[in-house]
């Protein structure tokens, strides 16, 4: 499913690490997010060296890897998943590059397309190195999302604009992923720099509450991406040995809060509320 379809109204795009803390629980959790109003879902494929992640998502990745998550299992997971929103694969380039028998990103992209992935976010792949993956995405009709950092300016923005499709991931502040209390002042400036781009702008890094989401959307974003605040719920449930259904309910509730917040940012009420 094409990714920009998710942005008809202010979008809520959650992230979870697939396989955290187990394959079966993870299936329930992702479906709970869809039930809670997610417009698209970023599904993290765990990599052993996640250099762009803060401690919350690093821990999720360790739990998923320890529970046996692999690229092969990940694709089975996506195929099995019963949700009706666009799915984005978020991972690191080495896993994309190593997959399948031929070197390069093509076999990974082909398999992702088969199981219903709509696009990719690859945090360690800047536009300079992205041509082979962009080419494979074009061949199979998938989107390639890029991250605009607070430090991204000038020619770098132009190069990214040329390659990006689906949506652009606006990094709200410097640093790694992780929930924070403040909405960064960087956000508005970043959004202003790409105001004329013809792809939806989704802001991520540090968004934790419905109120955050509201402020981000009222600052001009087309959607919000939320990872760590959701992974925290998964982690807490795992630590306390809470029943899967209870954790799934919490996730669904959090999803509703974030979706409502995003929609409020546009001065409307969420549909169905």
């Amino acid at each position: 499913m094409s990714l920009d379809a998710a942005f008809d109204d202010p979008a809520f795009v959650p992230y979870l690490a697939v396989g955290d803390p187990s394959y079966e629980q993870s299936l329930r959790y992702v479906e709970a997010l869809a039930d809670g109003g997610a417009d698209a879902i970023e599904l993290g494929l765990p990599f052993s060296e996640p250099i762009a992640e803060g401690s919350t998502i690093q821990s999720a990745i360790v739990r998923a890897l320890e529970a046996g998550m692999t690229p092969g299992r990940y694709f089975e997971f996506v195929a099995e998943l019963d949700v009706d929103v666009p799915l984005v694969c978020m991972t690191y380039y080495n896993l994309v590059y190593q997959y399948g028998s031929e070197a390069g990103p093509r076999p990974f992209v082909e398999r992702a397309a088969e199981v219903g992935i709509g696009g990719f976010v690859i945090p360690d792949l800047p536009a300079e190195e992205a041509a082979p993956l962009r080419e494979a995405c074009d061949e199979f009709g998938l989107d390639l999302v890029f991250i605009v950092a607070p430090t991204t300016e000038g020619e770098r923005l132009d190069r990214m604009h040329e390659f990006v499709s689906g949506y652009v991931y606006v990094q709200a502040r410097l640093g790694t992923t992780g929930a924070r209390e403040e909405v960064s002042e960087y956000t508005e400036r970043s959004l202003a720099r790409i105001a004329d781009w013809d792809v939806p702008k989704a802001v991520g890094f540090g968004i934790k509450t419905g109120d955050h989401a509201e402020r981000i959307v009222s600052a001009g974003a087309d959607g919000v991406i939320v990872g760590s605040a959701l992974v925290d719920i998964v982690a807490e449930g795992h630590e306390n040995d809470d029943p899967t259904g209870v954790v799934a309910e919490r996730l669904e509730r959090k999803a509703r809060e974030l979706k409502r917040g995003a929609v409020r940012g546009l001065g409307e009420t969420a549909p169905g509320q």
Binding site: I51, A52, Y93, P123, D124, L125, P126, E128, E129, F146, I147, V148, A149, P150, T151, T152, E153, R156, M160, Q171, L174, G175
Partner: peptide, 22 residues
């Protein structure tokens, strides 16, 4: 000049670091 050694090398880092690397 782009920092490649045959097929090796390159700059596979998060976008936030790219300006610093430049």
């Amino acid at each position: 000049t782009d920092g490649s050694f045959g097929e090796y090398g390159g700059q596979y880092v998060p976008e936030a670091l790219m300006p610093a690397i430049e």
